[in-house]
Simulated scan of single mutants.
Amino acid sequence: MPPTIHLVRHAQGYHNLCPENETLPDPDLTPLGLEQCASLNASFPYHAQLRALVASGMRRTLYTCLHAFAPDDDANNSKNSSSSKKSPLLPVIALDTLQEVSDAPSDTGSSIAKLKEEFGDKVDFSRMREGWNDKSEKSYFEPTLEKLATRARDARIALREIANGVAGDDDDAHVVAVSHGAFLHFLTEEWHGITSTYPTSWRNCEYRTYQFVDPTGQDPDAQLRETDESWRRRHGSLKVPTAEEQRELRQLMVRELSPFFKTRN
């Protein structure tokens, strides 16, 4: 059986409280966000099958991952790396490609040096490139539709590489990847549930379960498909949207996110 990927939106951050807080740089989790992590940890049914933890390099995703999936380690004291209860799933693998869509301060990450000082050896930053928090024109992370599609593909390929690497001969290996509400739609290419007032259908600390469409690992786009169990958990008997419906929903999201995109898109 191909590796199973659980995609998670981060817990509530201070930027989620009001639009004005989107000026906060790389914000932390709120007290409610910490409660959401504890609830996810208690309800998540696949802890025993987890083989790796992955998150974007943003502080809120890293802390969500630590609190929800590596709670035996003291996630509140990330500089203390000597804990005898350190989770065997650590370090969390940080992927710069999983970061959020826009170039708002709240969606722009901290320097790798600062993150290393804060998280110590609880996070593996080897897949993070210098300049990952540069979203200016012509950068890889510039928030244009074309570059977001490329970044989402690159993120899926990296997740497939990580998942296959940790799976080995295990036919029931699971991996968690914590990312962001808007970017998760690009990552999964699934646009159902978007409204004209809120450009993501992912709730804070929600998880959805996926597998790669091509289990051989040859698909150049590393496309993901949500499992039937995950879809039913969210929608009951609701039918999966058609390709045409998905295109229409994507256009709706693009319109809602247009203030964050470069004008040429």
Rank of each mutant, 00 (worst) to 15 (best):
P143A: 01
R225I: 10
A243T: 11
P19T: 01
D169W: 05
S111R: 07
S106E: 10
I112T: 14
K114S: 15
E161F: 06
L24R: 04
R247H: 10
G109W: 01
S43W: 06
K138Q: 11
S110M: 04
Y14F: 11
T4H: 00
L89D: 13
H192D: 15
W202N: 07
C37E: 03
F186L: 13
M1F: 00
P91S: 10
P143Q: 05
D103E: 15
S139R: 00
L29I: 03
I162T: 11
L89H: 13
P91Y: 10
S111A: 09
G217R: 04
G165L: 10
L40D: 09
E226A: 01
V178I: 09
G236Q: 03
E117V: 08
S179K: 06
S126P: 10
V54R: 04
S111C: 02
I93W: 04
E226P: 06
Y210W: 09
A104K: 13
R9M: 08
E130W: 02
G181D: 10
N21S: 03
A167D: 12
S102C: 05
P105R: 01
S81H: 11
L145P: 13
Q223L: 14
W202D: 09
P45H: 05
A52L: 13
S201W: 01
G120P: 04
S106P: 06
T263E: 15
N80V: 12
P27L: 03
S179Y: 04
F183A: 09
N204R: 03
A163R: 04
R264M: 09
T23M: 12
P88T: 14
S230L: 04
H10C: 00
N164S: 14
P3S: 00
G109L: 00
I112M: 06
S81V: 15
L95A: 08
E245D: 10
F44V: 07
A155Q: 14
S87F: 09
E226F: 01
G120H: 02
H10D: 05
P2E: 06
G109D: 03
E130L: 08
R255Y: 08
H174F: 07
S179N: 10
R208G: 02
T30Y: 13
P220R: 02
E229P: 08
I162G: 07
R9S: 08
R160D: 10
R247P: 00
A167P: 09
F186M: 12
V8L: 03
P3C: 00
T4P: 03
R234H: 12
S258Q: 10
P241R: 00
R208F: 03
F69H: 07
C18M: 11
